[in-house]
Amino acid sequence: MTLPPLEIVLYTGAVSLLIIGLAGLVMGDNLVRLVLALAVAEAGVNLLLVLSGFRQGAFAPILLEGRVPGPMVDPIPQALVLTAIVIGVGVQALALALVLRVRRAYGTVEMRTLRARLHEDLDAAAGLPPETSRNAPAVERPA
């Protein structure tokens, strides 16, 4: 039995994180969990980016005592991911602030409840009686 090479293991991990995060984003109902799923997907993307510069047997891109120790990995994806991680936490804080606002305005962070209350508000703003605008035909059916 031959083992898959190290890169395949790492690529599988990165793609799995991305898929798990996206599945959580699509299936999630709680807004906080959506933020968490976004963080997981972001971690997968970061790993995928850094992996694109990885070569087996190469050294970290840092000179030891002024000498080049040997072949080194690509420093550019690492620099990009370095800034992306810090941006990620800023975006996460912004999303959480929005969730706090939603919680205050609608009293819930569950998407289904939120959608129902949002529609109620829209109906009230449009002057429609509640519970008639949706799930009902626009005109009476001829008998």
């Binding site: 891109p61 840092i62 420093p75 550019i76 690492q78 800034t83």
Partner: peptide, 20 residues
């Protein structure tokens, strides 16, 4: 290219810092 000429052109031992 950055790995080759970075240490002389920038003078930073950490090449990621040189890129950033």
């Amino acid at each position: 290219g950055i790995l080759g000429q970075g240490p002389e052109a920038v003078g930073a031992a950490n090449l990621v810092t040189a890129v950033v």
